Amino acid sequence: MRRVEHVMGFPVSLRVDDEQVPGSAVDAVFAWLREVDERFSPFKPGSEVSRLDRGEIGPCEVSADLAEVLALCEEYRVATGGAFDVRLPGRGLDPCAVVKGWAVQRAAELLRAAGVERFCLNAGGDVVAAGGPWRVGVRHTERADRLCTVLEITDGAVATSAHYERGAHILDGRTGRPATGLLSVTVIAATLTEADSTATAAFAMGTEGIAWASARPGCQVFAVDAERRVLRTEGVPVAA
């Protein structure tokens, strides 16, 4: 079973290789992601995030889901010394860097709860996979038609942060300016919540982010710095 929809501003594709595919579980995945977009997008005036940012609801009045997301945002802000920050001066509250991985990981858990064993859920290039091996390509930093490497994932997640798709959109919260020092950071972890947030946080930190991400429990890192040097931890699961 394969299905693709444009949700949360990017294409989301789901492939399930089980012999029996519960259609209700697949529907639930995309319904959940559409719900997240409505509730947590800072670009939708009626979202919970926008209402919180305008002061229409207080921090103690947010939903349990948003409270969880904001707690994760604060965890990464503290861990990076402020390089990762969803409340930059002069900008509205924007937790998208955490919401994407968190939401897609939750979608993967819906599949597992429904008994789906072998699947690959790809959200704009960030991947949760189960029942592999699955081959996941990491895009070249300067050539859209080439790959830097191909990873082999059995059960886990892969996320990449870079400037090549959306320009200099990742800011260093310590300076308020676009992050420098790295061209891309790919993190492999048990969950996409961890992989995506860690990749974005590491990119925001610049070159020091590689060592920081590598030291996080369960994380493997593949990065390309501004000098076009490839840096990776020993456990990166490169496909044969």
Results as ranks from 00 to 15, higher is better:
Val49Gly: 04
Val49Ile: 06
Ser50Cys: 05
Ser50His: 03
Arg51Met: 08
Leu52His: 09
Leu52Pro: 08
Leu52Val: 06
Leu52Asn: 07
Asp53Pro: 03
Gly55Val: 09
Glu56Gly: 04
Gly58Tyr: 01
Gly58His: 02
Pro59Leu: 06
Pro59Arg: 02
Cys60Ala: 12
Cys60Lys: 12
Glu61Lys: 01
Glu61Gln: 07
Val62Phe: 01
Val62Cys: 00
Ser63Pro: 01
Ala64Thr: 00
Leu66Ala: 13
Leu66Lys: 02
Leu66Asn: 03
Ala67Leu: 09
Glu68Ile: 02
Glu68Trp: 11
Val69Met: 04
Val69Leu: 09
Val69Ile: 15
Leu70Asn: 10
Leu70His: 15
Leu72Ile: 15
Leu72Met: 14
Cys73Gly: 14
Cys73Leu: 12
Cys73Met: 14
Cys73Ile: 14
Glu75Val: 14
Glu75Cys: 13
Glu75Ser: 15
Glu75Leu: 15
Glu75Met: 14
Arg77Leu: 13
Val78Trp: 01
Val78Gly: 08
Thr80Leu: 09
Gly82Thr: 12
Gly82His: 12
Ala83Gly: 02
Ala83Tyr: 07
Asp85Arg: 09
Val86Arg: 05
Val86Cys: 11
Val86Lys: 04
Arg87Glu: 11
Leu88Gly: 06
Leu88Cys: 05
Leu88Pro: 03
Pro89Val: 06
Pro89Arg: 02
Gly90Glu: 06
Gly90Ile: 10
Arg91Val: 07
Asp94Ala: 10
Pro95Ala: 10
Cys96Gly: 08
Ala97Trp: 14
Val98Met: 11
Val99Ile: 14
Val99Asp: 03
Lys100Ala: 09
Lys100Glu: 10
Gly101Leu: 00
Gly101Arg: 12
Ala103Trp: 04
Val104Trp: 09
Val104Ser: 07
Gln105Ile: 01
Arg106Ser: 07
Arg106Gly: 03
Ala108Met: 04
Ala108Tyr: 06
Ala108Glu: 05
Glu109Asp: 13
Leu110Met: 11
Leu110Gly: 04
Leu111Trp: 07
Leu111Met: 07
Arg112Tyr: 00
Ala114His: 07
Gly115Arg: 08
Val116Ile: 11
Val116Trp: 08
Glu117His: 14
Arg118Cys: 04
Arg118Phe: 00
Phe119Arg: 00
Phe119Lys: 01
Cys120Tyr: 10
Cys120Phe: 09
Leu121Tyr: 11
Leu121Ala: 06
Asn122Pro: 11
Ala123Lys: 09
Ala123Phe: 05
